[in-house]
Write a protein that binds this DNA or RNA. Structure first.
Lengths: 226, 226
DNA sequence: TATTATTATTAGGATATCCTAACTTTTTGG
DNA sequence: CCAAAAAGTTAGGATATCCTAATAATAATA
């Protein structure tokens, strides 16, 4: 058993802190003791204590009064947690009718309780998805994320194909609309030639859709590049 | 929010102890400190400590050197936990291809982490099942178990029908054997008349089986009583 | 740059869980 | 019915989390 296989052996809080630190690092955001305290609804000294413990576990480098830095180990563990998190979200949304915007809290607790076996089962059931319901990439078992060289659908050349990756997930209405048309992360799209300037002709699976240029600019795809 | 709605706010171990105590009570079995210690792979003093805490929470009545007694509150909480447990087992088996004999450990951890909402979703997905994969009854939201008036298959009258409910689940070999013959919780059985004394003739679904009296005594069925 | 304001840490406690070692009560059996 | 054996408890520690109050370091500003 490697250090990260049995997540139930590790305290949930510690993993949550790690995850937060990781997300902030990815987003190039600064985060200190008091911000963390606020996020976790905890008092500052608790954060200091946690940072010490994370340091002791080798997940972060920590020196008093300095912001914590993730170690490679920390990053690798966080990546596995991200994978669990996104797979669980995907599963709850697609198999248990959870609302994409409401799964987070449930998953935050679950991700520390499910076994690797269950995660693998879910991954299989879902067909090894590369993106979660929010369009975020799901790292594979080795921690590699799908290489994202995303472009908007509007920049795809006519007669070219691409894979739907993500859409602006701030506009729920549009999201639902697109989903109802069969446009979801993973859907294969082909842009057909169309006479009109501000209107695209897109083949999504079997369907042929007309789509305003404006919307195509909000849809990010993974280009088929051979 | 009632005392038991947010199980994540309560320590998993305490709930596990409660569950064990409840199961023993139901089975009319005695259980003391050292047996508990063995079950939880923990030393005796830890059990004493836990019993004190369970007492303080009002889940059990405890006096030193005496076996613990469940309180009504304890029983009611345990019943909810049993519901979670059995629904989760049922779900993992029917929707995620877990082996009925291997779900237990997974569920033991999960049952303390899932929200009531998720449990309700699962319950719906499963169509409000009354029995789990082991044939054990699943209490409803109010803690009521399906009324079970079980009798053994050997006491079913000839030419009468009954529904397979449960079998002695201590004998794994027999269980697998019966399962392979199509005998599972839920299967409809009809006892046919047979000339032999120590041998029953049983129709299970489409199949006609010969079954030693001995085995029929270990199979519990829900009689068809109109 | 010196002083104030902000941010972060220590000190000292609480709870839940677990442990070892030493002790007590209950049970059992001659 | 009394002495071992078995079962259970207390005492004293450990770790992970969290807290409050007091203190220290860094950052910001006049």
């Amino acid at each position: 058993m490697n250090e990260t296989s049995t997540s139930s052996s590790v305290s949930p809080s510690a993993e949550e802190y790690l995850l937060t630190l990781f997300r902030k690092e990815v987003g190039n955001e600064q985060i200190g003791t008091s911000k963390l305290a606020e996020l976790f609804d905890v008092k500052a000294p608790s954060v200091t204590g946690m940072l010490r413990r994370l340091h002791k576990r080798g997940w972060v480098t920590y020196k008093r009064y300095r912001p914590p830095e993730l170690t490679d180990l920390g990053r690798s563990i966080a990546t596995k947690l991200i994978r669990r998190h996104r797979l669980l979200e995907t599963y709850l949304v697609s198999h248990l009718e959870f609302d994409p915007d409401e799964v987070h809290d449930e998953v935050e607790i679950l991700e520390h309780a499910v076994s690797d076996t269950l995660i693998d089962r879910i991954d299989e059931k879902l067909g090894h998805p590369a993106f979660d319901p929010h369009g975020e990439p799901i790292p594979d078992e080795n921690g590699h994320s799908p290489n994202m060289n995303l472009i908007t659908l509007s920049t795809v050349a006519e007669e070219s194909s691409a894979v739907f990756s993500r859409m602006d997930n701030r506009d729920l209405g549009m999201k639902k609309h697109l989903t109802s048309l069969g446009l979801q992360p993973g859907t294969n799209l082909t842009r057909m030639s169309s006479g009109q300037a501000d209107q695209l002709l897109v083949k999504a699976g079997e369907r042929l859709l007309k789509m305003p240029e404006k919307i195509a600019q909000l849809i990010w795809v993974w280009p088929d590049t051979y």
